[in-house]
């Protein structure tokens, strides 16, 4: 299969004898929205940290576009187009909404170490930043301080900031976590829009979101891959039902 963009081979993480991620083999197809689901403590977040090298793996390797990225630093991985978000909304609280996006846009300018240049030299990025804010419906908030935004808006801003890097692969860690119903719908639409021409791997608890959005689903339990397939296949799998709802539910 040549159109695999992200792949893990025997990826393992042990913490003092506890195996959080246990030789996971995963393949993410180019252009897919791929969900990673599983009960609490299944190792999903750890797996994400391994993919982006925020944690070093104990064993196994990660291949991105066919190349092992095990020796790169986390920021170098981001520079290659594999960009992650975080479980808790990761924004720069005391910067304005516009500045949040702009700080992601400014790196390609190559002036980020220029401490002698005025910050106004970044103003030429404002237009692009506004476009990105419009994409997530935040244009009216551009000058607001980010801490003042409601939670759902912060997640939208985080998405705009990620999109500013024009990533090939986006790793989203529970993008709808802690959101009310309306916010969830908005974020689902945003992800659907953002995923055009990109690949998305997302950790998600909300199965409705998963079923409406994702092309393929991998179920993790106790650090291992329990099942993989599209939504109908996975949801019919008795092992998955057991892991999620306990033994009795599996027989219903």
């Amino acid at each position: 299969m040549s159109n695999v963009v992200l792949e893990t081979r025997g990826l393992t993480k042990e913490f003092n004898g506890f195996t959080a991620v246990d030789s996971v083999d995963l393949q993410v197809q180019q252009g897919h929205i791929h969900a990673l689901i599983g009960p609490n403590g299944a190792g999903k977040s750890t797996f994400f940290n391994l993919l982006t090298r925020f944690l070093p793996a104990t064993r196994g390797e990660v291949l991105y576009r066919g190349k092992a990225i095990g020796t790169l630093a986390p920021n170098q991985i981001a520079c290659q187009g594999l960009v992650r978000s975080f479980q808790i909304s990761a924004v720069f609280g005391h910067m304005s909404v516009l500045e949040n996006v702009r700080v992601a846009l400014q790196r390609p300018l190559g002036t980020s170490f220029h401490f002698w240049k005025p910050a106004s030299s970044l103003d030429r990025l404002n237009q692009r930043a506004m476009q990105l804010l419009e994409e997530v419906d935040l244009q009216g908030f551009a000058t607001r301080k980010t801490v003042e935004l409601p939670y759902g808006r912060k997640r939208a801003l985080e998405l705009a900031t990620t999109l500013a890097l024009d990533p090939q692969v986006m790793l989203l860690d529970e993008p709808t976590q802690g959101m009310g119903h309306e916010d969830v719908e908005r974020v689902v639409e945003l992800i659907r829009k953002a995923a055009v021409g990109r690949t998305v791997l997302m950790v998600e608890h909300n199965l409705q979101v998963v079923s409406s959005l994702c092309d393929r689903i991998t179920v993790l339990a106790r650090g291992k891959v329990l099942a993989e397939g599209d939504y109908p296949a996975v949801s019919a799998n008795p092992q998955v039902r057991e892991a999620y709802m306990g033994k009795e539910a599996a027989h219903v």
Partner: peptide, 26 residues
Amino acid sequence: RTVNSPFGQVLYAIRENEPRAISLGY
């Protein structure tokens, strides 16, 4: 000037949320 420069913007971002600054490639 250092504080109000492109460099200062990145410093600000790092102080606000270091893991996020890393994930933006810095």
